[in-house]
């Protein structure tokens, strides 16, 4: 068993990481089950004492989600409608006990292909704030998650927050999750979408992402480009074609076949877009 660190100041946490790698623990909802029955051979950095990492709030055109903010806090925070999609995702991450303990940033750092928060973060153009003794850097979520359980975080870095840019006026978002049962289930596929309408009633900017259909969740740039400028109405969802989902690489597993996932992802994307048009 390695050492267990529980600093109260961010600087101490960064100093610990500068001294050598450690497994970072916040809610522990992914870390703990993965090690059931096995001791931690490595050092552990428990960041739950660092109050500076708590909280969710809008600040200068950005929504900041601190590294200790839980899914329940996100679901309950008084936030504008353009965050409805990720708030819906917040209620689909495990059960309520998991939502009370698990953090949004932790879900991202765990980098599961089926992480329920990631499609929304991608669609929201979120960025990750990484701190180390050398200073701060920010990188887009799309560049942060590299593969199954792999991220761009360096061993000496701590992910301290997620930062989401405030979109244009009238923006809204949606989220769809499919599992083999209605709740408490690992996703077969997910879709998230964020719309910034143009003043003339057409699609200004739209960002769409799909999760659990490949090693990492992915944006669908071809679809986003195709939808731009189209009228916002009930027909918009129907313009999504299977070819728009070509970038996905789903696999067969016990939860569903690759073929089923591909079909399901198409349906979920259409529904996520339909939700956006119905919110008008």
């Amino acid at each position: 068993m390695g050492r267990y660190h529980r600093p109260l100041a961010l600087a101490d946490a960064l100093a610990t990481l500068a001294g050598g790698p450690a497994t970072v623990v916040a809610g522990g909802t992914d870390v703990f089950p993965a090690r059931l029955g096995r001791p931690f051979a490595e050092d552990v950095l428990d960041i739950t004492g660092i109050t500076a990492l708590k909280g969710i709030g809008l600040d200068g055109g950005w929504l900041r989600i601190g590294a200790l903010a839980t899914w329940s806090e996100l679901a309950q925070a008084p936030l504008p409608p353009w965050l409805d999609g990720i708030r819906r995702a917040a209620r689909e991450v495990g059960g309520v006990q998991i939502q009370n303990a698990g953090t949004v940033v932790g879900n991202l750092c765990n980098a599961s292909p089926a992480a329920d928060g990631v499609p929304s973060l991608l669609a929201l153009d979120a960025e990750v704030e990484l701190a180390s003794s050398a200073g701060l850097r920010r990188i887009p979520v799309a560049e942060f998650v590299l593969g199954n359980r792999r991220t761009a975080r360096r061993p000496e870095e701590l992910a301290t927050a997620l930062l989401i840019p405030e979109p244009g006026p009238g923006a809204r978002s949606s989220f769809e999750k499919l599992g083999a049962r209605r709740y408490l289930v690992i996703s077969i596929a997910m879709a998230a979408a964020v719309l910034e309408p143009a003043a003339d009633g057409t699609v200004g900017r739209i960002r769409v992402a799909v999760g659990a259909c490949g090693p990492v969740a992915r944006r669908l740039p071809a679809l986003e480009a195709a939808l731009r400028g189209l009228p916002l109405g009930p027909d918009l969802a129907g313009t999504v074609t299977p070819a728009h989902l070509d970038g996905l690489s789903p696999i067969d597993d016990v939860r569903g076949t690759a073929e089923y996932r591909r079909e399901a992802a198409l349906v979920l994307v259409r529904r996520a877009i339909r939700t956006l048009t119905e919110q008008a």
Partner: peptide
């Protein structure tokens, strides 16, 4: 057996 836990061995939840 592959799915020997309650995350992967599905029984109905209330919402079902």
């Amino acid at each position: 057996y592959m799915n020997h836990d309650l995350a992967e061995y599905h029984v109905p939840v209330n919402a079902d």
